[in-house]
Computed example of a mutant assay.
Amino acid sequence: MSQVHESTSTIGYLIADLSRLYGRVFDRRAAHLGLTRVQWRALKRIHQAEGITQAALADLMDMEPIAVGRVIDRLQKAGFVERRSDPDDRRVWRLHLSSQSTQIMDAIEQVSVGVRQDSVAGVDPGELQTALKVLSQIRETLSQLDRASRGESSLRKG
């Protein structure tokens, strides 16, 4: 029983450490691209959901909309992102990658694949699949808990 308690009490720290170290290695390998981690995360999210709104992007990135707006300003100035007005709502900007961003997205993907492959080198493929399955289950449970807690807090306000 104490073995289970010990492993579950450190899982948050382990995940945080993995995230921090993964990001650090990625940043070093991607430094030649001249983008910050937040900028490449934004580009990747826009790439995955072309036409996303700034508000939706802020939510996906777990950032304040004003901070995402500044990131998009820099990416737009660098020629990687275009803001296009929403035909149904003039207050909303839709985000699209520019043609210039294709090259940077390919470079980011190469770095990403390299870090992923190197980070799991030496890990048994079956064990990796099990670990990914467990982490996915934890993510889903935490997502449910997050949605439930947001629902509770909105009920209290109303």
Rank of each mutant, 00 (worst) to 15 (best):
Q117C: 04
V38G: 04
G158L: 14
I72F: 07
Y22F: 11
H32A: 14
H32F: 13
V134A: 08
S101G: 06
Q54N: 09
G69C: 06
H96N: 02
T10Q: 11
I11Y: 14
Y22A: 02
T36N: 03
E64T: 01
V4S: 10
V115Y: 05
A67M: 07
E50I: 05
E152C: 10
R116N: 14
S19I: 05
E109L: 12
V134R: 03
A30Q: 05
K133Y: 05
S2I: 12
R45L: 15
L95M: 04
R147M: 12
L21R: 12
F80D: 06
D106L: 07
A30S: 14
H96G: 01
W93S: 12
M105G: 06
I15N: 09
E82P: 01
T36A: 08
P87E: 04
Q129T: 12
A58S: 08
G126Y: 01
Q3N: 10
R156T: 09
D124L: 03
G158F: 12
V120F: 11
D88L: 10
P125H: 01
G122D: 00
V123C: 04
E140R: 14
S7Y: 11
Q76M: 07
G23V: 02
T102L: 10
Q144R: 12
M61A: 10
S2Y: 12
P125T: 00
D146R: 15
R74K: 11
I108N: 04
S153W: 05
L135A: 14
L145W: 08
Q54P: 00
M105V: 15
M1Y: 10
V38N: 05
R156Q: 15
F26T: 11
I66F: 03
S99Y: 08
F80Y: 15
V123R: 04
A121L: 11
Q110R: 14
I138W: 04
H47M: 09
G34E: 08
L18A: 07
D73T: 01
I72Y: 04
T8S: 12
K77E: 09
G79E: 01
Y13D: 08
L35N: 02
K44Y: 01
R37H: 08
I104C: 00
R20K: 13
R45D: 07
S119A: 12
R139M: 06
A31R: 12
D106Y: 01
R28W: 01
R94P: 03
A121T: 10
K77A: 07
A131N: 02
D17S: 09
L21T: 02
L14M: 06
Q100R: 15
L97Y: 06
L145Y: 09
V25H: 04
Q117N: 12
D146I: 13
Q137V: 14
